[in-house]
């Protein structure tokens, strides 16, 4: 069931994009999101779309994975597109079908907003598809580093995130096992009234919690034995390295912003 989920999933690879420092990719995506709102002309939207396609090609990510990632939001895009088509009544009347009237401006706005959505979703998917969750965590830890000065527990948060990520597959496995054990004891989750179904979840949740707590306890002991006592005095094994690729990527981003600025109406 979960195996079919592609959105937000990391697909290992060895492209230019894969090899970028996670910090670069995070900064890049944040600035890109802001830059998207600079676009306000057909030419600037075309540039955004073209740039996104270029990024996809450079990343060598299979289109299938990206389309998979788009599925959850395709309805949203279609909905906003239609909303603009039907409710913007400016410009020339393009065509009429019964009570439906489509105006030029409506079509344009519909397309603009869809492109905006599309590039946002594609670029963030590209980030998660080409960067392992653990690298994203590393990148965030470093980028948020300055917040330590105001006593924000950056290290602890990053460790929490990385341990959660590490245990997701373990707990999914566990869920599957407990579910099967209860099914074998005649538990029935897929039929009955709403109330019965909610009740049927208890035999699943209680063992899952018990096991998660047990794991947490074991893990805490194992960490303590291995000398963990908070972030102070710790060194880092995972080193982030900034190289020419990262500089290039950020220069390209600057060029994109300049282009968008010039193409504004």
């Amino acid at each position: 069931m979960m195996e079919k989920m592609v959105f937000g999933r990391y697909i290992p690879g060895d492209s230019f994009v894969h090899r970028l420092d996670p910090r670069t990719k995070l900064i890049f995506v944040f600035i890109f999101i802001a830059a998207v709102f600079l676009a306000n002309s057909t030419a600037s939207y075309a540039l955004l779309l073209g740039f996104t396609l270029f990024a996809i090609i450079v990343s060598k990510v299979r289109i299938g994975f990206l389309i998979g990632g788009l599925k959850p939001v395709i309805f949203l895009i279609a909905f906003t597109f239609l909303l603009h088509i039907f409710f913007t009544k400016q410009g020339d009347l393009l065509f009429e079908f019964g009570f439906i009237k489509v105006y030029e401006e409506g079509l344009r706005q519909g397309i603009y907003i869809s492109v905006r959505f599309l590039v946002l979703v594609l670029m963030t998917s590209l980030l998660t598809l080409t960067t392992s969750p653990i690298s994203i965590t590393d990148g965030l830890e470093v980028l948020l580093g300055p917040l330590k000065k105001i006593r924000f527990p950056v290290h602890e948060l990053a460790l929490m995130m990385s341990i959660s990520l590490r245990f997701i597959p373990t707990l999914m496995d566990e869920t599957d096992k407990i579910l099967k054990a209860q099914l074998a004891r005649g538990s029935d989750i897929s039929s009955g009234t709403m109330k019965e179904r909610v009740k049927a979840v208890v035999p699943l949740l209680v063992p899952l919690f018990v096991s998660a707590f047990k794991r947490a306890e074991d893990l805490a002991v194992a960490m303590e034995v291995r000398g963990y006592r908070g972030g102070e005095g710790r060194t880092r094994y995972r080193q982030l390295k900034w190289d020419w690729r990262d500089t290039t990527a950020l220069l390209i981003l600057l060029l994109l912003i300049a282009g968008l600025w010039l193409l504004r109406r």
Partner: peptide
């Protein structure tokens, strides 16, 4: 410790 899963802290 006993349980191989519960003492694996790192991502790799």
């Amino acid at each position: 410790f006993q349980n191989p899963d519960n003492q694996f802290v790192g991502a790799t």
